[in-house]
Simulated scan of single mutants.
Amino acid sequence: MYTLEDLYSQLGKLFYAIAASDKRVRDEERNTLRIILENEWKNDLVNAGEWGYNAADQIEMTFDWMDLNQPSAYAVFKEFKDFKNDNEELFTPEIKQMIWKTADGIASTFAGKNKSELVMLSKLKSIL
């Protein structure tokens, strides 16, 4: 059985996939993620987990780890999709809304949404 901490790790991967869909994570995308995490994900909705990290911390740490290791954005997205399909109960309407807002914000950061980001957002929209 998966926990909310597992969900947040998967969200860090998803947000990396959105940012890296054009083969490069830009500083502006990383900064946008941090701002959204600070404003939207660090609230009473999510308490600190087993290791004392809240949702925003867990998402950001996973995002940074992914960026350091640079796996394929599409492989990472598929992993998120599989996780979501297997754990629908973790995806409340509020979480889905926050996921979309965060992903769209990242994609909109650098010179608007490019084709790769639009494709990734379209795929995300279809599974949310």
Rank of each mutant, 00 (worst) to 15 (best):
V46A: 09
N31R: 14
E29L: 05
A20Y: 08
K23S: 08
Y16I: 12
K13Y: 14
N39D: 12
R26A: 08
N47T: 07
K23M: 12
G49V: 06
R26I: 09
G12W: 10
A19S: 07
K42P: 02
K23R: 12
K23A: 08
D22A: 07
D27I: 13
R30Y: 08
L37E: 05
K13I: 14
I18M: 04
L33E: 03
A19N: 01
E38Q: 13
I36Y: 02
V25R: 03
R24D: 05
I36K: 03
L14C: 07
I18N: 00
E40V: 07
K42D: 10
E50R: 13
I35S: 10
R34T: 13
W41N: 00
E29H: 01
A19K: 03
D44M: 15
F15D: 00
A20C: 05
I36H: 01
V25N: 04
D44C: 10
A20R: 11
E28K: 14
R34Q: 13
N47S: 12
E29D: 01
L45S: 09
A20N: 11
I35A: 13
Y16T: 12
E29T: 04
L14S: 08
K23N: 07
R30W: 06
N31G: 06
L33G: 00
E50C: 05
A48Q: 09
K42S: 11
A20T: 06
R34C: 09
R24E: 05
R26W: 11
L45E: 06
K13D: 12
V46Y: 11
A19H: 02
L45M: 11
D27N: 11
A48H: 04
A48T: 10
R24I: 09
D44H: 15
